[in-house]
């Protein structure tokens, strides 16, 4: 039951992009087409889950016992960037098709604030390892959902005659705002 609440709240109520404003760069950057949006979502889910597990371990077995909490930001970002590099190397060897599919999105992952944000939130909200993993996966699903919906909207926007001043980024931001408004409708369910 506890896990169901975490999942629903992460995907619909506190959607990582539309309610918490994390990971906006890829949200606007790679939402041109539905297929690339889904690929990015998959890559984020992969890295976010592993990063949450690893940073949880480091926090509970190294930083807290040795009273080094103030090093949190530096260690996490180093761990995440080396993790991204490692995942890239392993995937290249083990599963070339998956590597090809995620290819361009993997290196961008280091500066995706959603990954670092979720890793910090898992510690701040005092999750256990298991609920932390569920939390990370649910947030990644929420990220993918928002990204794919926005990509769908943008594909439709191509066909519309937008007023001159609003062309390009402004109209996409307004569309994202209306999407966030729609997601606020879920606020009561958890």
């Amino acid at each position: 039951m506890e896990y169901i609440i975490i999942v629903l709240s992460a995907i619909l109520v506190n959607n990582i992009v539309l309610a918490q404003f994390l990971g906006l760069c890829p949200f606007f950057g790679v939402s041109n087409k539905i297929s690339t949006a889904a690929g990015m979502g998959g890559a984020v889910m992969f890295v976010m889950t592993i990063a949450a597990i690893v940073t949880y371990m480091i926090s509970h077995f190294i930083l807290i016992p040795f009273d080094l909490i103030y090093l949190r930001t530096i260690t996490y970002i180093l761990v995440i960037s080396s993790l991204v590099q490692m995942v890239e190397i392993i995937l290249k060897k083990v599963s070339p098709p998956l590597y090809q599919a995620l290819g361009i999105f993997l290196p961008l992952m280091t500066t995706n604030c959603a990954i670092l944000g979720v890793a910090i939130l898992v510690i701040q909200q005092e999750h256990t390892l298991m609920s932390g993993v569920v939390f990370a996966i649910a947030h990644a699903i929420g990220f993918t959902l928002a990204l794919v919906i926005l990509a769908g909207i943008r594909e439709q926007l191509e066909l519309v005659n937008v007023p001159k001043g609003m062309r390009g980024n402004p109209i996409i931001l307004v569309a994202a705002g209306l999407l966030a408004l729609a997601f606020m409708g879920f606020a009561g369910i958890v």
Partner: peptide
């Protein structure tokens, strides 16, 4: 709230 942020930045 969140939606206003997107819309205000858009304008």
């Amino acid at each position: 709230l969140a939606p206003g942020a997107f819309i205000a930045l858009g304008y």
